[in-house]
Design a protein around this nucleic acid. Structure first.
Length: 460
RNA sequence: GGGGACGUAGCCCAGUGGCUUAAGGCUCCGGACUGUCGAUCCGGUGAUCGUGGGUUCGAAUCCCAUCGUCCCCGCCA
């Protein structure tokens, strides 16, 4: 029961060969005296022809049955060549048929368009993912990640993993928490980004780091936001902003060329934050020009380091508290902190933020000053970030980096209208997974081991 | 937390108060057909219109509540 070929590779040059294919029944076309099956696997579709000999058994085949077919590759008669298929000049004349695994009637049709309620698609995601368009998207995702790894590898970047179980920090989005069994009452947090760890890797002297990193944020979902998303996270020592951006631009140019056969004009245009706001009224303008490519990248840089938080009557970091202020603005820190600009940059594609980064503070004194300016008491910042501050005291190198949202980038590259379309098993709008039923109750025993009790108001 | 749209057979969808015994396409079932390619043709099964309540002589169609889905705002350093 070993296949000799996949469903996308037979050509005219294979005429006469005895082959064995395995695949799913994509479509059945029954003509009475003969019957066609479009056999599908991840590589493509090959037409299989059944005549009188195997007719009765082939007639019972249904969509998505898994079958094995032994037969001979033959030329299609003149006028019946299908130009839509790369295998369209040939067909396999079936001599043996094995029903390997039957399929139930499908909850929705795979061979039609995507107009099916998303909840149903997600409940049966393993079927939804059989559709060629979904396979294409995930294959594109694989290629993108592979190209990134190869590219950064050549540039001497090291791929280093950072913890998923880590520590909650006070800034940013709401954390996902994981209770500690060994330390009752304490919690790990899932990382919102590897930010602190990659800075520590710079202190450790790795100079060029990257990671295809999963990031977690417990906030409400959107078409372009999931509770967990994947970003290309990278960080470099001893590089200027220009050098970092050049690496990203070259990489993105390469990705669009390799994946979409599109030449993206380099370098990307730059806008200062103030300029973007005054000209376009937004810090993520859509600069698409209909005459040219459909993809328009722009860097927006020099964001203010702080923004004023009215409710709390204090300064909040605009980006994150590790961003290096512009040298020429340092003198403003005490008197006019809202005028201080940061050495930071967002990458905007078609009006959507697909990346952001900055040069980082690498000296303890300045970092402490920033913590103070955003209203963290010494007690708080020492308990939350003391390890970082101390690390900066051991000859920490100047460094900076960036993170690109891979789901968003893929969404835009593939023309999908939601990042869920480029994620194999995404969460639905309420953060749940219709397929597995997560999140779900756990047993009392599990809670007990974690020293947790559920508030009865929320029923148990 | 707020706003909007939607919820009709397995899937997609028409129908905005009586002319609908709720239409159509696909799936599914049966039949015909030796060259199709989301085959075609003929026939058939299948929904009381998310749920509950109300208005009315009469409701899928109006009102209220509730549940669910999606989109947006808030939120997302």
């Amino acid at each position: 029961m070993k296949r000799t070929h996949n469903c996308g590779e037979l050509r005219r040059s294979d005429l006469g060969k005895d082959v064995f294919l395995i695949g799913w029944v994509n479509v059945r076309r029954d003509h009475g005296g003969l019957l066609f099956i479009d056999l599908r696997d991840r590589y493509g579709i090959t037409q299989v022809l059944f005549d009188a000999k195997l007719l009765s058994s082939s007639k019972s085949l249904h969509s998505e049955d898994l079958i094995g077919v032994g037969g001979k590759v033959q030329e299609r008669p003149k006028g019946t060549i299908n130009n839509k298929l790369v295998t369209g000049e040939i067909e396999v004349f079936a001599e043996k048929l094995f029903l390997l695994n039957k399929s139930k009637d499908l909850p929705f049709e795979l061979s039609h368009d995507l107009k099916v309620a998303e909840e149903i698609r997600l409940t049966y995601r393993y079927l939804d993912l059989r559709r060629p368009i979904m396979q294409k998207r995930l294959i594109m995702r694989h290629r993108l990640v592979k190209l990134i790894r190869d590219y950064l590898g050549k540039k001497e970047f090291l791929e280093i993993e950072t913890p998923i179980l880590t520590k909650s920090t006070p800034e940013g989005a709401r954390d996902y928490l994981v209770p500690s069994r060994l330390s009752p009452g304490d919690f790990y947090a899932l990382p919102q980004s590897p930010q602190l760890f990659k800075q520590l890797l710079m202190v450790a002297g790795f100079e060029k780091y990257f990671q295809i990193a999963r990031c977690f944020r417990d906030e409400d979902l959107r078409a372009d936001r999931q509770p967990e998303h994947t970003q290309l996270d990278l960080e470099c020592s001893f590089m200027t902003q220009e050098e970092i951006l050049a690496i990203i631009e070259e990489m993105i140019g390469m990705l669009f060329e390799e994946i979409l056969s599109l030449k993206i004009p380099l370098p990307f245009p730059h806008l200062m934050y103030q300029e973007a706001i005054s000209k376009y009224g937004t810090d993520k303008p859509d600069l698409r020009d209909e005459k040219k490519t459909n993809f328009s990248f722009v860097w927006v840089e020099q964001f203010p380091l702080f923004q004023f938080n009215k409710e709390q009557d204090r300064l909040d970091p605009q980006h994150h508290p590790f961003t290096l202020p512009m040298e020429e603005d340092l003198s403003l820190l005490d008197q006019e902190p809202l005028k201080v600009r940061g050495l930071c940059y967002d990458l905007i594609l078609n009006g959507q933020e697909v990346g952001g980064g900055s040069l980082r503070i690498h000296k303890r004194e300045l970092q402490e000053k920033i913590f103070g300016l955003i209203g963290l008491s010494q007690e708080v910042y020492l308990s939350k970030f003391g390890f970082l501050l101390e690390a900066l005291e051991y000859g920490a190198p100047p460094h900076g980096g960036i993170a690109l949202g891979l789901d968003r980038l893929l969404m835009l590259m593939s023309g999908a209208d939601s990042i869920r379309e480029v994620i194999a098993f995404p969460k639905s709008g309420d953060g749940s997974c219709p397929l597995t039923g997560a999140p779900a109750r756990v047993s009392l025993q599990q809670l007990k081991e974690l020293s947790l009790k559920i508030d009865k108001k929320n029923k148990l």
